[in-house]
Deep mutational scan, measured.
Amino acid sequence: ELSWTAEAEKMLGKVPFFVRKKVRKNTDNYAREIGEPVVTADVFRKAKEHLG
């Protein structure tokens, strides 16, 4: 699991709890794919757009 900024964690907190774990995993995987060592708010937004 990658490191997350406080802002990205806050955004994740707005995701319904029953899918939060999956969203975190998918976002981590997306960040790795694009070469990001940390999940930022920008990476979170891009993952959301990319993953739907």
Rank of each mutant, 00 (worst) to 15 (best):
V19Y: 14
D28H: 04
R45T: 09
W4R: 00
F18M: 09
V15W: 08
F18K: 12
V19D: 14
V19A: 15
K22F: 13
T40N: 07
E9S: 07
V15Y: 13
F44G: 01
V38G: 03
F44K: 02
R32F: 06
V43N: 02
P37I: 11
K10H: 09
P37E: 11
A6S: 09
S3D: 09
D42I: 06
R20V: 04
G52M: 14
V39T: 02
I34Y: 09
V39D: 01
E7N: 05
T40G: 03
E33S: 14
N26E: 15
G35Y: 04
E1I: 10
R24T: 02
S3F: 14
K14C: 11
V39N: 00
V15G: 03
K22I: 15
V43W: 02
G13V: 08
P37V: 10
V43R: 01
G13N: 15
A8I: 00
G52S: 13
E1S: 11
D28Q: 07
P37A: 12
E36T: 07
A47M: 07
R24Y: 03
K48P: 04
M11A: 07
M11Y: 05
Y30G: 00
A41R: 06
M11I: 06
T5C: 04
N26P: 01
V23A: 06
E49L: 12
E7R: 07
A47E: 02
D28R: 03
A41L: 09
K46D: 08
T40H: 03
L12E: 00
G35M: 06
K10E: 14
F44S: 02
L2F: 05
F18D: 11
E1N: 10
R20N: 03
E49S: 10
T5P: 00
W4T: 00
D42Y: 06
R24K: 11
L51M: 13
K48L: 15
V43Q: 02
L51A: 10
I34D: 03
L2K: 05
E36Y: 09
V39G: 00
K25A: 12
L51C: 12
K48A: 15
V23D: 02
P37H: 10
N26F: 15
V19S: 14
V15L: 15
L51T: 08
T27N: 02
K14W: 07
E7S: 06
E7D: 08
F17T: 09
E49I: 12
E33D: 11
L51G: 09
E49V: 11
K14L: 13
A41P: 07
Y30A: 02
E9H: 06
E1F: 10
N26Y: 15
E1Y: 10
M11L: 15
S3Q: 13
M11V: 04
L51F: 15
A31F: 01
K21I: 13
V43C: 04
